[in-house]
Measured scan of single mutants.
Amino acid sequence: RYTFRTRGPEQMKRVVEWARRQNLSYRVEVHGDEYIIHAE
């Protein structure tokens, strides 16, 4: 189980790509310009 905090969509997309390659399920929360990605 991982939690990532990123700023801006570019970093968020990179984390999502990584999670997909690992076959993890993930969800993204948006708080202003901060993205929180939960993957497991």
Rank of each mutant, 00 (worst) to 15 (best):
H31K: 10
Q22I: 05
T3Y: 09
R20K: 14
H31M: 12
V30I: 13
V15W: 09
P9L: 15
R14H: 07
R27D: 06
V15T: 03
V30R: 14
K13P: 00
H31T: 08
F4M: 03
P9E: 15
H38R: 07
E34I: 14
A19D: 00
R27V: 13
M12D: 00
Y26V: 15
Q22L: 13
P9M: 14
S25N: 12
R5D: 01
Q11T: 10
R20T: 12
R21G: 09
V15R: 02
D33G: 10
P9F: 15
G8R: 14
E10N: 07
Y35D: 01
A39Q: 01
V15Y: 10
E40S: 12
Y2N: 02
N23R: 08
L24K: 03
R5M: 08
W18G: 00
E34G: 10
T6Y: 03
R7L: 08
E34V: 13
S25E: 09
F4T: 01
E34K: 05
D33S: 09
E40Q: 12
Y2D: 01
H31W: 11
Q11L: 09
R27K: 11
H38L: 08
E40F: 15
S25K: 13
T3F: 08
Q22S: 09
R21A: 13
Q22G: 05
W18R: 01
R14M: 12
V28P: 00
R7K: 14
W18N: 01
T6R: 04
V15I: 15
E34W: 15
R1A: 10
R5I: 14
V28F: 03
Q22Y: 13
R14V: 12
A19Q: 00
R1S: 12
K13W: 12
E40D: 10
Y26H: 04
A39V: 15
T3E: 08
E29T: 09
R27Q: 09
E34T: 12
V28M: 04
Y26W: 12
Q11Y: 06
S25M: 11
L24Q: 01
Q22D: 02
R1V: 13
E29Y: 12
R14D: 05
W18Y: 03
R5L: 08
N23E: 06
E29G: 02
Y2A: 03
V30D: 04
L24Y: 10
Y2H: 05
E34N: 07
D33H: 08
V16N: 01
R7Y: 11
A39E: 01
H38S: 05
T3D: 02
V30G: 04
R1H: 13
R5P: 02
N23K: 10
V15C: 11
M12K: 03
I37Y: 01
H31V: 13
R5A: 05
I37H: 00
R14E: 10
Y26P: 03
R27M: 10
H31Y: 12
V30S: 07
T3V: 14
R5Q: 05
V28D: 00
I37P: 00
E29I: 11
E29H: 08
E10K: 08
E34D: 09
K13S: 08
E17Y: 05
G8H: 15
T6P: 04
N23S: 07
T6A: 15
E17K: 06
D33T: 09
S25C: 06
E10W: 06
I36Y: 05
Y35G: 02
P9G: 10
M12R: 03
W18H: 02
G32L: 07
R1E: 07
Y35Q: 03
K13Q: 13
W18S: 01
K13D: 06
L24F: 10
T6V: 15
Y26A: 04
V28Y: 03
G32A: 06
L24R: 03
S25L: 12
V15M: 06
I37V: 08
V30F: 11
S25D: 10
G8Y: 15
W18Q: 01
I36S: 02
R21K: 11
F4G: 01
H38K: 05
R21Y: 06
R7G: 04
G8A: 14
A19F: 09
L24G: 01
V30L: 11
V16H: 02
E40P: 04
V30W: 07
I36G: 00
H31C: 12
M12Y: 07
W18A: 02
R7A: 08
E40N: 10
T3W: 06
R21I: 08
Y26Q: 00
I36K: 02
E17R: 09
Q11G: 13
H31G: 03
V16Y: 02
R14S: 07
S25R: 13
F4W: 13
R27Y: 14
H31D: 14
Q22R: 12
V16K: 03
S25I: 14
R21Q: 13
N23D: 05
L24W: 09
Y2M: 08
E10A: 11
S25W: 14
V28T: 03
I36A: 02
V28W: 04
Q11E: 13
R1P: 10
T3K: 07
R1Q: 11
V15A: 05
Q11W: 06
Y2F: 11
V28G: 00
G32R: 05
E34S: 08
N23G: 15
R14T: 08
G32T: 04
F4A: 01
A19Y: 04
R1K: 13
E10G: 07
N23H: 11
Q22M: 15
F4C: 07
Y35V: 05
T3P: 02
V16M: 05
R20F: 06
I37W: 02
R14Q: 12
Y2R: 04
G32E: 07
A19V: 14
P9D: 13
P9T: 14
E40T: 11
Y2G: 02
I37D: 00
E17L: 09
H38A: 03
A19M: 11
V28A: 02
E17G: 05
R1F: 09
R7T: 12
E34C: 03
G32S: 05
M12S: 03
W18F: 03
W18C: 05
R7M: 08
E40I: 11
E17C: 08
E17I: 06
I36E: 03
E17D: 11
Q22W: 13
F4S: 00
R27W: 15
Y35S: 03
R21E: 11
Y26S: 03
G8S: 15
E34Y: 14
A39Y: 08
T6D: 01
R5H: 12
T6K: 03
R14Y: 08
F4V: 05
E29L: 07
R20G: 04
G32V: 04
M12T: 06
H38D: 03
A19E: 00
R27S: 12
E34R: 06
A19S: 03
M12N: 01
E29P: 00
H38W: 11
N23M: 07
A39D: 00
K13E: 12
V15N: 00
H31Q: 12
Y2W: 14
K13A: 11
A19L: 15
A19I: 15
E40M: 12
I37L: 04
E10P: 06
H31R: 11
H38V: 13
Q11D: 10
M12P: 00
R7H: 12
R5G: 02
R7W: 08
G8F: 15
Q11I: 10
A39C: 15
R20V: 14
Q22V: 06
E10M: 09
T3A: 04
M12E: 01
A19W: 02
N23I: 02
N23Y: 05
R27L: 09
R1C: 15
E10F: 05
T6L: 11
M12Q: 02
A39K: 01
E10Q: 09
E17M: 09
H31E: 13
N23L: 06
Q11R: 08
R20S: 08
H38E: 08
Y26T: 09
V15H: 03
D33M: 07
E40Y: 15
T3G: 02
Y26G: 00
V30M: 12
A39G: 02
T3L: 10
N23T: 03
K13Y: 10
D33Y: 07
S25V: 14
V15Q: 01
R5F: 10
D33L: 07
E34M: 14
G8M: 14
R1D: 05
V28I: 13
L24T: 01
P9H: 14
I36W: 12
L24I: 05
Q22A: 10
